[in-house]
Design a protein around this nucleic acid. Structure first.
Lengths: 358, 358
DNA sequence: GTGAAAGCGCTAACAG
DNA sequence: CTGTTAGCGCTTTCAC
């Protein structure tokens, strides 16, 4: 129904050509209208609309003028139909990546995706699957040619949809390292292992000798690789194993700190897999009578807003989520443009940000 | 790689039908293919695809079979072009509503929008505007017929985009009360004033006589109306004004509590505009030596995850964000279907959830 | 109930 | 550099 009532009043919607005096009331101008008022052909208008290559400057400006006079705006559907592209990219949120909704970085990611895509005249379609059935449906949808490509963020191991996409034919770029699909898919990530190593080394350099860690979920590359970096940095000479797994949630940070403290009351250093967990871990530490950084020095990860607000302000690893997201879009655009291209992998730089907690 | 290599190896992926020997390699099956293999006309297939009205049952099943055999899936662009609808709805995030990205309810909202829309065969297009220029651009975009309708969440007063949409012709539904546009736009909200009244009444009924409040931003309807409910409940006989404005952020909850305490060390009750602020406010209260609820009873708002995790667990007002979002989509669908329809306003129910903080 | 036919508005060869 | 000419795949009258 929507647009159909345009032709309601005077019984007409289209009036193919010129000559005609009174034009139908409210009809969205078409490329034809622009062509007519600019005095050129449809093709020329189309060329201008698509970059203006191979068009005389004067023609370009005439078209531009006509466009603004008429308030013309391209009809996506028509363009898509004719060009064979859909003009949109899916942001895939699978059943298993539902945790994204509570991830503090989600906002930043979606914001950057949206912005970058618009600059390339692409739309961001958010697709969610809330159970297995929907996930199958979503898989069909994505591979059925409804979108030009897909963006996947912060996957966990064994992501079913990823498996499907890896085999499929839709260009996909993953933000974060897709465990198990590193070779088949494109991704942009950071060197978690090295960053964690740097963080823990700071603690060691300060003379801390009983350094614990609260990891992220070990079914994510971030969780796993940061733990590896920690292990490499503490080496073999720790009195005991001071590792406990968290799930990114603040609550798990608190619980983890308590567990670690119970295991070794002498713990004097702590590396936490995310700022959010670190903040609660610090709260637990303080409640247990530890001064920070005097008794226990703490380093977080992400350099999120929580790091600055924390008490004391948190020393952490800065991670360029916005740049990474932009890079992911850049790669996806390339994959879409050049069908044959092979997967691209990009490692973004991180850096240690010193504040007062260590 | 993408779509092109389907024709790579043996040159085929789908095999539209019998009869014809070698068909063009990899081509998405069209409605025409379905018609041929089902032995009916395109029109009939189209009818089946769109609900199957006025089609003989047998024809329906033949078409269905052909569809699944061929793995047919409708080409949105073609459908949109022919039908005049776009098949997508925008989730508008204006420059001024960027706060959404850090709103803990954002995830829930987007998730429900996406799910409900899909059930109606509509897509969720996320549109963001990060500065004034982009906002103008977005306004043009939305009113240019690129989407069938728009969803707006948790607006603040003076939202420029809302102003534009209110005048425009695109169906719009707002989640939350759009201050200043209550009459022109459709919205679904809760009765903030009544809910706040109920919360504060609980405090009064417990004998608290010096009840303070940390409000949400007063340029939002939630902030403002909850304050009104608070005022009505405390009445005229409070010793002094115990009101301070927060901005939904945890930090502002802490700061607010401290300000209130400084103004009246005897404060024995506190109503906070959101759970997140309430949690930090409680932390500040405890650090200032108050026991909760003995010395100060606290009530929050939202019934978010933070309420349960808080220490002590927070008594709060439950707000059905998911149902509201679903309702918003329902209304939007209606507005899209019936162009002329006038704005709809829905108030969703809330309820007080008692835990230990009051 | 069903088919034929006419577009929807645009892009993309292909001539010139 | 520019115009002509075919469609892209689907919905939708309009007859039958």
């Amino acid at each position: 129904m929507a647009l159909s009532d345009r032709s309601g009043l005077d019984g007409n919607g289209d009036r193919p050509d010129a000559g005609d005096a009174r034009l139908p009331a409210a009809r969205r101008p078409t490329i034809e209208d622009v062509a007519r008022t600019a005095g050129v052909s449809r093709s020329t208008v189309s060329r201008v609309l698509n970059g203006g290559r191979h068009v005389r400057p004067e023609a370009i400006s005439r078209v531009d003028r006509a466009v603004s006079v008429l308030g013309y705006s391209v009809n996506q559907a028509a363009r898509n139909l004719a060009s064979g592209r859909t003009g949109s990219v899916a942001f895939v949120i699978s059943e298993q990546s539902e945790h994204l909704f509570s991830d503090p970085n989600f906002g930043a990611i979606i914001r950057v995706f949206s912005r970058e895509l618009r600059q390339r005249d692409q739309h961001l379609l958010v697709t969610t699957a809330q159970d297995y059935g929907e996930e199958t449906f979503l898989g069909d949808y994505l591979t059925a040619g409804h979108v030009d490509g897909a963006l996947f963020a912060l996957p966990r191991e064994g992501e079913r949809l990823l498996d499907r996409l890896a085999r499929g034919s839709v260009p996909v770029v993953v933000l974060g390292r897709p465990l198990g699909y590193e070779h088949q898919l494109s991704w942009v990530a950071i060197d978690d292992e090295a960053a964690a190593f740097e963080a823990v080394s700071l603690l060691r350099d300060q003379g801390r000798s009983r350094i614990g860690t609260i990891t992220g979920p070990l079914n994510t590359s971030s969780g796993r690789h940061r733990l590896q970096g920690y292990r490499r940095a503490v080496g073999m000479n720790q009195p005991q194993d001071l590792v406990t797994e968290g799930d990114w949630s603040p609550a798990s940070g608190r619980a983890g700190a308590l567990r670690l403290l119970a295991g070794d009351p002498q713990m004097d250093g702590l590396f936490v897999g995310s700022d959010l967990m670190a903040r609660e871990a610090m709260a637990a530490l303080k409640e247990s009578g530890r001064r920070i950084p005097e008794d226990v020095a703490v380093v977080g990860f992400d350099d999120s807003a929580a790091a600055v607000q924390a008490d004391p302000p948190l020393t952490t690893i800065h991670q360029p989520f916005d740049l990474s997201a932009a890079e992911a879009v850049r790669i996806l655009t390339e994959l879409i443009a050049v069908p044959g291209s092979s997967p691209q992998h990009v490692i973004m730089p991180t850096r240690l940000v010193r504040r007062s907690s260590a």
